[in-house]
Design a protein around this nucleic acid. Structure first.
Lengths: 199, 199
DNA sequence: CCTACCGATCGGTAGG
DNA sequence: CCTACCGATCGGTAGG
């Protein structure tokens, strides 16, 4: 007559990550406390410390949790045609976030902590490098296939990252879905101008 | 035999703003306390509360202080030739910040507080609207003069804002001067492609 | 503006 | 995991 373990016995770590997510969304990073996370978790603060030694450990684990989710989303793109693949990648980076506004807010907040947190910097840099690598790869593919001009791959990838980050920042700060839409269009314009200009 | 008043009797409000700036730069927004500001100020926490009723009042005043400085910088651009004026404006937005990295960090941090602080949102929106207005104006001028194509002014201005914000975010998070330089180049490319494409 | 202090809350721990 | 508690620090105030 035991309860179904799947419902009654969920992974405490994942539960705490989700609780941290909710607490962060509700109070913001500056007002994120163990107590508030514990309240969302539904248990005591000692329960949090049982699983994570320090607040810093918890927050670093949480950042990994968040960035892994993001990585999974981007990783889904599997088309091989360079033009289509670049389009889909930009869609993932600029259209998908509309459904995950909370995630955007959380990431932006933690990003702004980078100047004061080496752990955070390391994670964000690694994640950024990964996305930029994906962009470079698809652009290089396009150049080899002959559908894209022979451009400076690094520069174009960086330019696209700037557009992506700008759109995300503005989507959060000005709460406008417009930003992502405008950015998607701007990215498309840029790709056309930079990669297939001579067509 | 009195001390020179200019040195011995500075404006307390401005002193506190500068102290807040230093404290923010050193500890970050999440760890910004009245005590730390008071230490930078060189007086007691009660001295801070004598000039500002609440921490929130102080921080809102500080944001105004910061954004006014920024506004002054942008306002300096006075050339009338549309093409040159747009170039100078983009320089102000993307080249100037190199000398004020600390300011960028501070602004990014406070920006990320917008979802939790209506006062902040209001200020940032107003400031953003002003910059975007400057961009729209110069683009419209260029269109009237015939040096720019007859484009969607709103869209182009928004696209440039996205590039600017993206570059700033990345300059802070990844500590790379590259971002601003790449963004300046990207903005130039975009302007050429969007505004003088048919030339 | 200062000294001295307030209640509240912080991250973290002991003992079970 | 909980209860109970720790010292430290928080924003803010009273009284001068």
């Amino acid at each position: 007559m035991a309860d179904t373990p799947t419902e009654a016995d969920p992974d405490p770590h994942e539960e705490i990550m989700r609780a941290t997510y909710r607490a962060l969304r509700e109070h913001g990073y500056a007002d994120l406390t163990i107590k508030r996370i514990a309240d969302e978790y539904g248990k005591s603060t000692a329960a949090i410390h049982y699983h994570y030694d320090t607040k810093d450990d918890l927050l670093t684990a949480f950042l990994d949790f968040i960035l892994d989710q993001f990585k999974d989303t981007v990783h889904e793109v599997e088309t091989t045609d360079p033009e289509q693949r670049l389009e889909l990648l930009l869609d993932k980076l600029l259209v998908d976030p509309r459904d995950h506004q909370d995630l955007l807010v959380a990431i932006l907040e933690m990003r702004s902590q980078v100047p004061y947190n080496d752990q955070f910097r390391e994670r964000f840099q690694q994640n950024d490098e990964y996305v930029q690598y994906l962009l470079r790869t698809v652009i290089d593919q396009g150049i080899k296939t002959g559908v894209f001009d022979d451009v400076d791959t690094d520069h174009v990838a960086q330019a696209l990252m700037i557009i992506v980050d700008g759109a995300r920042t503005r989507a959060v700060v000005f709460d406008e879905e417009d930003s992502l839409e405008t950015a998607r269009q701007t990215a498309a314009e840029y790709v056309t101008a930079a990669l297939v200009a001579d067509d």
